[in-house]
Nucleic acid binder design. Sequence first.
RNA 1: GCGAGAGUAGCUCAGCCUGGUAGAGCGUCACCUUGCCAAGGUGAAUGUCGAGGGUUCGAAUCCCUUCUCUCGCUCCA
Length: 589
Amino acid sequence: MAESKPNELMEKVVSLCKRRGFVYQSSEVYGGINGFWDYGPLGAELKRNVKELWWTSMTRMRDDVVGLEATIIMHPQIWRASGHVDTFTDPMCDCLLTRKRLRSDQIEPQSGTAYHYSGASDAGSGRAVSEPYSVLVQAGKPVESARKIAIQFYQARGLAAVTLEGERAEKVENSQRYNPDNGSLLTEPRPFNLMFKTHVGPVPDEDNVAYLRPETAQAIFAQFKNVLETSRQKVPFGIAQTGKAFRNEVTPRNFTFRSREFEQMELEFFIRPDEVVEVLTGSVATPTAPGHPGEPERNWGWQLWHQYWVEERIRFYEGIGLPRTSLEEYWQKPDELAHYARATVDLLFKFPFGTQELEGIAARSDFDLSQHERSSGKSMGVFDEELRTAWGKLDEATRERIGSSYFEHRRGYLVKAGVPAELAEKKAREDVEGLAKGQYIPHVIEPSAGVDRLILALLTHAYSEVTTTDDKGKSETRVILRFHPRVAPIKVGVFPLLKNKPELVAKAREVHALLRGQMMAFYDDGGAIGRRYARQDEAGTPFCVTIDFDTLGETPELKDTVTLRHRDDGRQERLPMGGLLEFLRERIH
RNA sequence: GCGAGAGUAGCUCAGCCUGGUAGAGCGUCACCUUGCCAAGGUGAAUGUCGAGGGUUCGAAUCCCUUCUCUCGCUCCA
């Protein structure tokens, strides 16, 4: 990474992105639209490469993961079951004094005396403010403390010497309208729905409200049974999906990092609950050392699976040019975890504007499938013949122990989900009976990555500057994007050494024709050769091929060889044309 | 959404204070030149000065509104 100040580096990257056609602001000719970005020619190739590498490594290279491509608009019930309708509709309000933003439903109810003011004036300047305001003070506190806050409020609105007007006291019980920190009145609560709403059908009304998905994952849960029944997969296995998701962010920030329309790469990897693993294998293996635990084993519990996926994902990033040192693993603290999550690891990248999340790998227990089972009324469980048989062979004490552990987990989930205690107990007991018959709801490990964030990480990580000084002492700074060849938008540039020699141009065209179709190859004969190299460096092209007079046979033993030039160090080597394709393929795959 | 700063050629910026109808460097394109790292020459294109409104004989310049970007408060792909 270049050694610039954070903002400087970010500005350079943003500027380069536009100049070279990686990223443009959406709808720019109309003044742009906040939180939306388009990918230009180079960006589109880069993004495509990243998604294909993810898809290939997740599905094609594995026996135990299959793909899904679901719609963006789904049955609205999905978002009620997932919790997005509730948690994404937060009423927010602002403190009128400090402008601090608060979740109005999370404000501790306050009681005391509210002092209302109709406005204030400044005798000195003759100015007046007629905006009403109030301050809540706890019972017993003097009125002066309210006045002090109110004076600050009116001072902030331009009065120097404040004379408060229309003071009036009122008893208040359990109000959420005041800031607990300073007693200041808050703005009216406004709902902040982070889901984009639309209507299915031509006439918008309440009955046909639908949402653009705020994550791709829920479709995987909703289609879990279909995939299970049609893919010939058995737990443990995963379902992968990439696609657009939409969140009406309060504050889109940091270039493409937080966008309102963005793309995700998500895997839901379904595993057996630990109780099932124990029944089948007699014990549950747990992590013994940090690092990659190796090939999956039958006796792995959720913790090992979780660790496995964390390490798999880090390997993926390493494979596309983000070394482990550029990443940071953050294990969420118990109080930060969502209530259904058992563990979540964030993979953070050191962006110029701060260390921020690229991907979250969550162990989500059986929460999601259970929610959809309760919400849809359709079973989300799987049946495992082997489990039923193994259960039959257990002794009574073991059945009792494993059964009660399973019972506690299921009851815990149901109670948290709002099921009345008595009913939850009854249902949890039924679940234990199901377990004995070979039925259970799979747990899930969810590695969920943001594509656009990853693109931004790759761009900022690849960005570097090289300053050279020529004979005349004139120094010049060139930009090199040091992309891993796997993600580089253009894999190879093909140039005739000179443009005004038709034989060179024809030969270069021939080489270009040989390579294109196999990989993104770019032909260029404009300007001097050094300039063309520089242009490709800036686009992040790892290799350039130059056709010269030796290629044509000027030095007989060099006939049909070309110069291959490496981006990162300018090194050149001579290669036979016939071996070119293989040489490049080895390095870009 | 709120507070602070900014928006002029593809990019980086000057001009704004003190109104008189837009400039530099780089880049882009064409031609010439070219013997491996942004070489040189000649020529060309490009701005409704972010958008809208107002003041004025006249606005990039002064005033208002709006949009976008950057930074702080919330967020986690």
